[in-house]
Design a protein around this nucleic acid. Structure first.
Ligand code: NAD
Ligand code: NAD
Lengths: 236, 236
DNA sequence: GATCGCATGTGCACAGATTCACAAGCGGTG
DNA sequence: CACCGCTTGTGAATCTGTGCACATGCGATC
């Protein structure tokens, strides 16, 4: 039986664990063997108390007065995130974005090999993108089943995104990463995350605009820096 | 003088306004002239009370007993987000991702035309990606200055991302959208947002893993659906 | 012009996330 | 083996966000 039974980790923490993991792996490569919550906080751009609380959800894996053993922490975070094995993904839509994703080595390195990429356009089928051959939609189910895929990526135009999601679900996928700027409707039990780059730009635009109007209304142009936080602006 | 002076809008709300905006524009195109908080909530996959509270930060632009006039709401959200004019962006890094971004029409449509794309690799310079010619790094400042760019996109490998950000800041950019999986360090007054696709996949992986272990520990395989929420899984 | 239905706008209670502050405890030192 | 410095782990306070529930007020109807 595992140490704590079925502890539920807050979503906010789950979203930060991958960031810690990334940093810790980099530190390992630099030969660092031990790290304090302060050190990790610095590298991750967050508060040290938050780091400690986040890590405490995994269990007590630090040593008081010393810090955390990097290797062991990597192992524990990996385990918690389910990264102790690969998660092959299937990409639907071999357009601009789908091709960039398929050709990107970073996913493979981080445990998400591209099991296949499918497209509805016959002209795209059988072309090679990033070492992967584009397959027709009819093979989607077969790819999912044979490679035991549970994560699908939607990279089709918005109008086709729901169709793509429906096919993924029908094929047996239970998690979807959606790049189309539309809300996907899926059965209960399927998890969807959306990445919308236009939304990100619009959030930046809001802050730009706010800065501009604050300057206009403000002390007359002289922009004096906020107290501190070292050398970092609004982040996410 | 504007109606409310300098109301501060909660970050969570700022992040949802672009989603409402997108939906409202689509509704306009469908000929819909008026929408209730319920309707908008449905289309946006959120709670109706949240929609009302979010919109109330902009001012009282609804009509009790009726709803919101779509056109007017679009206008107000645009204004609040600073989308009453275009925000040209400059992309650093013309690799897989940079090319996909430059070739993507959706940014232009949503008010973020690509003012330029630069790369450090001479072999890439002068090639055309998505109708835009790749420029050498030496022209970055000139592009930023002449097109009045305040938003930069980092699409270089992680190791070069800080360098790219430094150059953007030096050129005068005050907002950065970072696609490299590293924390960027920037001066106070510069806003950074990070989009990390591997993080998104890892969050999905966490939920997959959790589902799997819950099923193993659970009632023995028979997956019965959660009470409801209609037909939608975990979302973001 | 009084009445009624209906959707907004918001006070309030609750939930979740962040941060502080400090007791607990490990390892090294004398 | 007792002491000391240092960092973890966590209770408690605070801040932020969510969602209910309902008073408010608009517009339509009679
Ligand atoms: N390219 C980018 O940089 C970028 C940036 C942000 C968001 N997006 C979003 O990502 C999505 C894809 O963008 P893109 O630029 O790659 O578009 P694209 O038009 O280049 O490619 C879309 C691909 O999907 C295929 N397709 C269409 N309908 C399909 C269906 N029902 N099933 C399977 N395949 C189908 C098309 O044949 C095409 O190959 C869009 O929703 C877009 O809004 C793209
Ligand atoms: N391709 C994807 O789908 C994808 C997905 C997720 C994340 N990313 C991230 O996006 C970034 C870019 O990925 P990619 O696949 O396009 O990489 P890539 O290697 O194809 O392209 C990177 C480009 O940046 C240029 N470059 C390198 N150093 C530079 C510098 N100092 N200044 C300016 N340009 C420089 C290179 O010449 C190259 O053209 C990476 O950080 C990657 O982790 C990419």
């Amino acid at each position: 039986m595992p140490p704590h039974r079925a502890r539920r980790i807050p979503e906010a923490t789950v979203a930060r664990l991958p960031v810690y993991l990334q940093i810790l792996v980099e530190q390992t490569e630099l030969g660092v063997e031990s790290i304090s919550s302060d050190g990790l906080a610095e590298l991750g751009g967050v508060n040290a108390a938050k780091v400690r609380k986040d890590l405490s959800y995994l269990g007590s894996y630090g040593t008081r007065g010393v810090g955390y053993e990097v290797d062991y922490l990597v192992y524990q975070i990996r385990r918690e995130l389910g990264l102790d094995h690969d998660w092959p993904v299937v990409i639907v839509g071999a357009g601009n974005l789908g091709q960039a994703l398929a050709g990107y080595g970073g996913f493979n390195d981080r445990g998400f090999p591209v099991a296949g990429i499918v497209d509805i356009d016959d002209a795209k089928v059988d072309t090679l993108v990033g070492g992967v051959r584009v397959r027709p939609m009819s093979e989607l189910s077969q790819i999912v089943a044979s490679r035991n895929v549970s994560i699908g990526v939607v990279a089709t135009p918005p109008a086709s995104a729901q169709d793509a999601a429906d096919r993924l679900v029908k094929a047996g996928v239970t998690s979807i990463l959606n790049f189309a700027p539309v809300l996907l409707s899926v059965p209960v039990g399927v998890t969807v995350r959306k990445v919308d780059m236009a939304v990100e730009l619009q959030i930046l635009s809001y802050h730009e605009q706010r800065r501009a109007s604050a300057a206009a209304a403000g002390t007359g142009g002289q922009l004096h820096a906020v107290p501190d936080e070292g050398r970092r602006g609004v982040s996410a």
